[in-house]
Design a protein around this nucleic acid. Structure first.
Lengths: 200, 200, 200, 200
DNA sequence: CATGAATGAGCCTTCATTCAT
DNA sequence: TATGAATGAAGGCTCATTCAT
């Protein structure tokens, strides 16, 4: 009875470690083979039983939601860093795009949707998508007010921008280019030029 | 040993109609819920038995491949018409983009891939994708040679352009705007401005 | 109205020919691949539609029953010829065995049962089996009464004899030997020696 | 990450019991209705779900292969015992035949083949058949060298002998006789007399 | 709590049988 | 009457989820 506090803490730490391994395994498998992975595979790669997964995640879908959210957390840090580099809206926009591009390259789950059933408004891109959309919209609106960016609904322009940063697109570009940094900059330039004010 | 000519012709016409209904049903369901649809669902919506589907398509995957190809056929016609409107490379590019946008809006399968396993480069977008990519690349290269479009690998720029024309993106934009034509033009302008030569 | 008699006769002859082709096709396929053949395959090889088969045979099982019976008809002719060669019971038994062996070699369906569910008394060996069993039993009983064959229930001894004449057994023997006639005689001698009276 | 040792052992014992029940159910159904039994039926009779069967046997065919092999294991023990009773080749042959007869009566799968496609020579009778054939061939050859058995290819004679010991034959005999032991001896005598040297 | 064996609904596919032509 | 397209029940197999240990 006396050592229960320490044991409890110990167990909680084990649990914590287990969950990290589960998430890591799920992330890897998800990136490798998409939604086709089975819960058993995740459990095996994580070195736990399936029951352990179901203890924390009430369903397979919840597990994958958690994977997406974890990817988002990582991305947020990168974005915050990128946003801090400058206060000029257009430069900041470029930095954000480059940062997102890089994240996207390594996080297949990043902007993927649970069941991307076409037509579904897809705020289901748990967490990050809406946040990113807002972030980009605001940056675009700011650039527009300074006259540096073309007019047009910032929401739509942000949507277009995000499309170019989805992992499949990013991977396609990077593979064609073979130069990750160059590709990131090329995408950023394409977007920024598309957004810049013009009399066209 | 062979039925009468008239009966044979009639039967063949019925068969034809059935297959169109199957493809239409598959197209709709595919658009609604992605590759998760079951063969039974397609059969039910088409008003036929599963056996009828399996008579023409040796597997579920063959059915979906056919759906993609049918979408491609429709799209090709639209594209040919759009390409014929002008010889100016940039104008033609704009027309292609608008035409693709409209097709994409109604053909969820248009640019979808057979098994979009994340990480797979996915030029497997059977049939249309490579053709579109070539088409856009050539139009972009032509515009570049005239000095009307920015320099840069035409292939990469075509890839970026196609990303903006995937059905999910298109649907998202159209829903946000509520104005299909306006949305199509906005996307076209975004792309063209992104492509236009600049000293940035 | 006037030519109907001739037309009817002609149709009946076509029908007859069709049925023969169906039976022939079924016999071949049955011999080649056992009960795994589908009705469609039989129809295709026979050059008719499945409906034509179902017009004459109310089910797949009935078709195969007919195949067995046709095989039996052929066999009966051979057996009658063999039985006519001699009146000595033992010689006649030998002739019957050799004749059956040869038939069996070419009629995979000959002694096969529809569903040989072990434990089922299997009078289902439509037609031929019971007849053969009676024939052999009588020949054995006759030999016993002359003191040329060992005592013992003729029915059991006939059963044992028939086991050695099933197509799989016959094929195995013939393949090992490579000499059909020699094999037939070897089997006949084995059986006859097993049946001959002895003081063992 | 691993359950307690005791629990693990207990679980493994349950698993073991389950598999025995599955094999027993499969054996019974196989004997009753041949290869036509479904996996669901086996599962139901065993009192388990189909998944439990598929956990151990990767396909229906693997299950039936296991049934055959289990039957073989049982049979081998009986045969070893029978072979040990005497060194006289002919007596030993008789003992083997009687032992096989008894086994065969209760193991419908004993000499059955995986896919008995008519015409297939079917030495594919996994495991036991070749072993039995060798065993009998050797016993026959030994008897021949002592002059106690007729001349002739021992392999062919062994084949004939095995034909008489197939479960359907055995069951037919036993049912007709109603006396298992008597029937076994009658078969053994038939075979031995057929094999004994003679000047016929 | 962790484990992983067990479950069983549901999927894809085949094929005997029917029936409109 | 012959045809063969259509039907749909049923089978093999998978895998998300549960639960006894």
């Amino acid at each position: 009875m006396s050592g229960s506090g320490a044991a409890g803490r110990r167990e909680r730490r084990d649990m914590q470690r287990n969950m990290e391994r589960v998430l890591q395994a799920a992330r890897e498998l998800f990136a490798e083979r998409g939604a086709a992975v089975t819960v058993s595979e995740v459990a095996e790669r994580a070195g736990v039983g399936v029951g352990t997964i179901y203890r924390r995640f009430s369903s397979k879908e919840h597990l994958f939601t958690a994977v997406r959210q974890a990817a988002c957390s990582d991305a947020r840090l990168q974005l915050a860093a990128a946003a801090a580099t400058t206060h000029d809206p257009v430069s900041r926009l470029g930095a954000l795009i480059v940062a997102l591009y890089r994240q996207s390259l390594h996080q297949a789950a990043l902007l993927d949707s649970p069941r991307s059933g076409a037509g579904i408004p897809d705020d289901a891109r748990h967490g990050l998508y809406p946040a990113l959309h807002t972030l980009l919209s605001e940056a675009i609106a700011a650039g527009q007010q300074l006259g540096h960016l073309r007019p047009g609904d910032p929401a739509v322009l942000a949507t277009l921008t995000l499309e170019l940063l989805r992992p499949p697109a990013v991977q396609r570009i990077s593979q064609a280019t073979g130069d990750c940094d160059g590709a990131a900059e090329q995408v950023a330039r394409f977007v920024l030029d598309g957004l810049r004010a013009s009399d066209s």
